[in-house]
């Protein structure tokens, strides 16, 4: 069993390419490849080394991917998996628009490298409803008009569901505090709080 749990080499790409023993194994001409790496031109080749495997579940669907380590979970969802319901609002963990659940906990997907989510289960806004049947929080947001432009809404809803599940929705004041990581520039806050409070008070398991 390796001490390193993922299979990326400990060396930079260039260092890696310099290891002739590996080149032999790969049946490649060292000089050509090395030159390519130095000039950063052979991207097709580079991908072999720069992307690393990632296995995760998103909305109960299993994915086996290869991604660059610098790709965030947010960009993976939006650009690779076409799950654009999760929004990019600031890309720095300062607005909450990118909130998703990772193994049940709400997190800002913009500050999470995708590769840090190996083996985890991610739920996005697209995974909240059961088919055509809206999740009670989604229905409550519509009823209380908990949005205007709708851009922060998926993040607000994911955060709201977690807020109730965590047991932090016992009063308006508590909801406001525990929802403060989700900014809404249209200012739908009071309506969002009403929606959350209603879902909480109904007591339905969410």
């Amino acid at each position: 069993m390796s001490e390193i749990d993922n299979n990326q080499s400990g060396d930079t790409r260039r260092d890696f390419l310099k290891k002739t023993s590996l080149f032999t194994a790969l049946s490649l001409t060292p000089l050509t490849v090395l030159k390519a790496a130095d000039n950063k031109v052979d991207e097709r080749f580079a991908e072999l080394f720069e992307k690393i495997p990632l296995n995760l579940k998103v909305n109960n669907k299993a994915y086996s991917l290869k991604v660059e380590p610098r790709v965030t979970l947010l960009d993976l969802l939006r650009e690779e998996l076409d799950l654009t319901g999760t929004k990019k609002g600031c890309d720095h963990g300062q607005c909450g628009a990118c909130t998703v659940h990772v193994d049940g906990a709400r997190v800002n997907s913009c500050l999470s490298l995708a590769v840090m989510n190996e083996g985890k289960s991610v739920t996005t806004i697209e995974g909240l409803a059961k088919g055509e049947e809206l999740h009670p929080m989604q229905a409550a947001f519509i009823k209380h008009d908990g949005f205007q432009c709708g851009y922060c809404t998926p993040g607000q809803i994911m955060s709201a569901v977690a807020c109730v599940r965590e047991g932090h929705a016992n009063s308006k004041e508590e909801i406001r505090e525990y929802m403060s990581g989700n900014i809404c520039r249209c200012g739908a806050y009071p309506n969002i709080v009403d929606a959350i409070q209603e879902v909480k008070e109904k007591g339905t398991a969410i």
């Binding site: 654009t84 809206l134 989604q138 949005f147 709708g150």
Partner: peptide, 22 residues
């Protein structure tokens, strides 16, 4: 009356400009 585009907005189906995959 609820918003006519409420369902799209709460389900993440509403597509904003950056979300068109060409």
């Amino acid at each position: 009356n609820d918003r006519v585009d409420g369902i799209e907005k709460v389900t993440g189906k509403a597509k904003y400009f950056a979300e068109f995959k060409l």
